[in-house]
Computed example of a mutant assay.
Amino acid sequence: MLTTRSSLALAVLLAAACGGEAATKPAPVEAAKPATPAPADKPVEAAPAKPAEQPVLADSGLGVGGKFKPFEIVNCDSGEKYCQVCKFGGSPKIMAVGTIDDEAFKNDLKNLDALVQKYGEDKLKAFAVITDIKDGKAATPTGDRAALEAKVKALRTELGVTMPLVVPADEGGKNEAFDSWYNITKSRTVMFADGRNAVKYTGVAPADLAGLNTAIQEVLGVPADAPAEPKAG
């Protein structure tokens, strides 16, 4: 039989054993909560495409408020291929357009060249584009180009003008930048643009150059009582 002292000692041991087990028992682990998914990125909307620029049109050529655009030409005197609008840069410029067999157009070129000489080539530029007009619309000449360029070169000598006489460059049977943008429907179309290529005057077979002369004076800042302009023939 256990003595009282032995019984007390055993009770103490049992209590310690039970307390130790409770102390070493791990705390219950909470179940992991599912991760909240990150919000999906909103799709980036593409910026709307800018509408293509449209030319301001006159009956033939560009209307006032329109703009000269670059296009490739062949200079019939030098044979070089380049952009005449670009070459004249920030100078105010006259562009005359007509067909090689238009006698009145030849007289226009002499009058326009005289106008350039009046103001000075350092202030005003001019060039003439020789094109075909088929079915009421300009068409880049695609026939015997060598013969045409030689004919245009001879015309410049015949007229005694200093302005370049050019033909649109043949780019696969057409010159989209010239044929479509410039809207030439008639020979003897004359356009004038300021140094930023904004059209300030347009006309077809003008009876005189008064309107063109006024536009040039306004762009150049020349007094309105400047010498009279050459009379168109």
Rank of each mutant, 00 (worst) to 15 (best):
G173C: 01
A38Y: 08
A232S: 13
P230L: 07
P223I: 06
D194T: 06
A11S: 13
A96D: 14
I184Y: 03
A27K: 14
L220D: 03
L115Q: 13
K174T: 14
M191C: 02
G19Q: 10
L159K: 09
G66D: 12
L220A: 11
A40Y: 00
L2S: 10
T99A: 04
G173S: 02
A35T: 12
L165K: 00
G160T: 08
A146Y: 02
N183A: 15
K106L: 02
K123L: 02
D179F: 00
K42I: 06
A146P: 01
G19W: 14
T4M: 12
K42T: 06
R5D: 07
D41T: 14
A224T: 11
P141E: 03
F178A: 11
P206M: 09
P92G: 11
P141N: 00
V56M: 02
K151E: 14
V97S: 07
T3H: 04
Y119E: 09
P164S: 04
P48I: 13
D144Y: 03
L13I: 14
D102G: 01
F127M: 05
G89T: 08
V199F: 06
D144Q: 03
K118N: 12
S6W: 03
E121R: 13
F178Y: 15
A27C: 05
A126V: 07
A177T: 00
L112T: 03
K200M: 08
F178D: 10
A215C: 15
V222H: 09
A150F: 02
D41N: 14
K137A: 15
M191Q: 09
A193Y: 10
P223V: 03
S78H: 04
G233N: 11
V166D: 04
P48D: 03
A215M: 14
T157W: 04
K67C: 10
A232Q: 07
T99D: 02
Y182T: 03
V166W: 01
E21T: 09
L155V: 01
A114F: 11
L109H: 01
A232G: 00
R145A: 12
S180I: 14
K200I: 08
A31M: 08
N107R: 15
A31C: 04
K110H: 05
I133M: 01
Q84G: 03
K186D: 09
A139H: 10
K134M: 04
V129S: 07
V29S: 13
S78D: 09
A16P: 05
K186R: 08
G211R: 05
G89R: 06
A35C: 07
P206L: 13
S7V: 15
A147I: 05
P206C: 13
R145Y: 08
A17S: 14
V161M: 04
G211Q: 08
E149D: 11
K87G: 04
A146F: 00
R188T: 00
V199K: 03
G19P: 00
V44W: 07
S78L: 10
G143Y: 01
V161R: 00
V166G: 07
T24C: 10
E53D: 11
K110E: 09
